[in-house]
Amino acid sequence: MSTLTPTQGPAGPAGPPPVLVAGAERARRSIVAKPTPADVGFVAAVRGAAISTLVVMVLIAFFLALGAWPAFESQGWRFLTTQEWLPEAGTFGIASLLWGTVLIALIALAVAVPIGFGAALFISEYAPPWLRRPMVTLVDLMAAVPAIIYALWGFFFLQGQLLQVAQWISVHLGPFLPFLRVTTPDSLSGYTSSAFIAGVATGAVVLPTVTSIMREVFAQAPQGEREGAIALGATRWGMIRAVVLPFGRSGIVGGVILGLGRALGETIIVYTIIAPTFTLTTRPLESGSNTIAAHIAAKYSESNGVGLAGLLGAGLVLFVFTLFINTLAGVVVRRSRSGAATEI
């Protein structure tokens, strides 16, 4: 499209097409593309729209930084290392929140990545052809289900199911792995509202993201190599290991990173499930944890002054963090989509 330069008015002299004769001298006709006023306006308008989306991103960073400035000014670097959140006492920071955010996101990935990997392989390699399109639609639909619905499900259904699992893990594996212990192993209520449960519920939201990225990349593994592997006597799993996974490696990594970015910013599910605390949670099975997003949702209405600035600062940190993660994922996935990672 961009190689074509339209000319206005009659395109060249009418007549028979010029015949090229060797040695014949012909005057070169120069073709000039002179855009009409409508074209100038059109290109300017759509370019303006495109630039305005750029501007929105800049505005997000600008207004978050502007609002957060008082907090950074009063706390300095301690904003990143303080655990408590006591703006009235003049000391607050996001260390515990940042740790909780990463912890819950990692638990979510531990759930979503194996299942998403398997589901992506199932859709692209194992499912019968008539089932493939419906499965892809289901994954897309699952990604469209609002987070608040996942939150209802996680709080009222999943939590009840997971309490026993959490207790079993803690009682049987706790003696060997200290981080799986809880202070009150006997009562089930000690396991409610934990980082573990919030993480698993977040994993359900991340699952479709991870699945669809991985499936998309797996489906691009070349047909010829697949058939070659099968023809050489490989089993289906042998073919997947020899062809699909090497070709889809960057898709796997990209899916994991994109899932991480999604999990880091999850608000409503975590806020609905966890009981907020301001310590560095070292026991994910025990009640109480916190994340940046859930903290903002919990505190925004009762904050003012420097506390509110602190919330904006926390939001800015989250924004920069996810921006970094997603840029990384974008680079990895784009490389796989362009085929650069799939040389033989």
Binding site: L54, I296, T327
Partner: peptide
Amino acid sequence: EVGGRLADAVRRVVETMSSVPTIVAGLF
């Protein structure tokens, strides 16, 4: 339809925008 170097940049920014946490959008 127009493309160019600016378009590549815009495409990347739009991709990143889709992953901005929604709470950050509200905060903005």
